[in-house]
Amino acid sequence: MDVFAFLEARIRDDEDAARCGFLTSVPTAIFPGGPVSSRGTELSPPMRQRVLNECAAKRAILLHCMLHCSDSGVEVLAVLARVYKDHADYQETWPSHRMSQWPPQSGHAAYT
């Protein structure tokens, strides 16, 4: 599986979960106060919409990179894929060598 197929599958997983109202394997720090059940973290209707909007944005980035980007585009997708690094299909070999220390620490240029 390449990074394109991997991201498409994870985006689809996130969309399906948001439509059902639950995200699985989400740290409660990301969605504080959301009830957690065996199905995952329960999402409020506004949070469901935010997750669906995020999925649409990720899909737009994926499509743009597929159609218009060179190797640097694949690196961007590898960075997006790192969000899902705990997934069984994630591959450390995807070209995200510039992002080996992700997320950046406080004080890093990404935060300025």
Rank of each mutant, 00 (worst) to 15 (best):
1 M>F: 08
2 D>I: 07
3 V>R: 04
3 V>P: 10
5 A>Y: 01
6 F>L: 03
6 F>E: 03
6 F>Y: 07
7 L>I: 04
7 L>F: 00
7 L>N: 03
8 E>K: 09
8 E>R: 13
8 E>T: 10
9 A>D: 12
9 A>K: 06
9 A>V: 03
11 I>H: 08
12 R>M: 04
12 R>T: 09
13 D>L: 12
13 D>E: 15
13 D>W: 06
14 D>K: 08
14 D>Q: 10
15 E>G: 04
15 E>D: 08
16 D>T: 15
16 D>R: 15
16 D>K: 14
17 A>W: 03
17 A>I: 03
20 C>K: 14
21 G>N: 09
22 F>S: 05
22 F>G: 05
22 F>L: 07
23 L>R: 07
26 V>W: 05
28 T>V: 12
29 A>K: 06
31 F>M: 11
31 F>T: 11
33 G>T: 10
33 G>R: 05
34 G>F: 05
35 P>A: 11
36 V>G: 06
38 S>Q: 13
39 R>L: 12
40 G>P: 10
40 G>Q: 08
41 T>Q: 05
42 E>S: 11
42 E>Y: 09
42 E>K: 15
43 L>D: 08
44 S>A: 11
44 S>Q: 07
44 S>Y: 03
44 S>R: 04
45 P>F: 11
45 P>Y: 08
45 P>N: 10
46 P>L: 08
47 M>P: 01
47 M>L: 15
48 R>E: 10
49 Q>L: 13
49 Q>V: 13
50 R>P: 01
51 V>C: 10
52 L>K: 04
52 L>Q: 03
52 L>N: 04
54 E>M: 14
54 E>G: 15
55 C>S: 15
55 C>I: 07
56 A>W: 00
56 A>P: 05
57 A>F: 10
57 A>C: 12
59 R>Y: 02
60 A>Q: 09
61 I>Q: 02
61 I>V: 14
61 I>H: 01
62 L>D: 01
62 L>E: 01
62 L>Q: 00
63 L>M: 09
64 H>Q: 03
68 H>V: 06
68 H>C: 15
68 H>N: 15
69 C>M: 11
70 S>Q: 14
71 D>L: 14
72 S>T: 09
73 G>N: 03
73 G>W: 02
76 V>K: 01
77 L>F: 00
77 L>P: 00
77 L>V: 00
77 L>W: 00
78 A>R: 01
78 A>D: 08
79 V>R: 02
81 A>W: 00
82 R>F: 02
82 R>Y: 03
83 V>W: 01
84 Y>E: 01
84 Y>R: 00
85 K>I: 04
85 K>E: 12
87 H>V: 10
88 A>Q: 13
88 A>S: 13
89 D>N: 12
89 D>Q: 13
89 D>M: 10
90 Y>A: 07
91 Q>R: 15
91 Q>V: 10
93 T>A: 15
94 W>Y: 06
94 W>S: 03
95 P>T: 10
96 S>A: 15
97 H>E: 15
98 R>M: 14
98 R>Q: 14
100 S>M: 12
101 Q>R: 12
102 W>D: 06
103 P>I: 05
103 P>F: 02
103 P>W: 02
105 Q>R: 08
105 Q>T: 05
106 S>A: 07
107 G>W: 00
107 G>M: 02
107 G>R: 02
107 G>V: 00
107 G>Q: 02
109 A>S: 10
110 A>S: 14
111 Y>D: 04
111 Y>E: 06
111 Y>W: 15
111 Y>H: 12
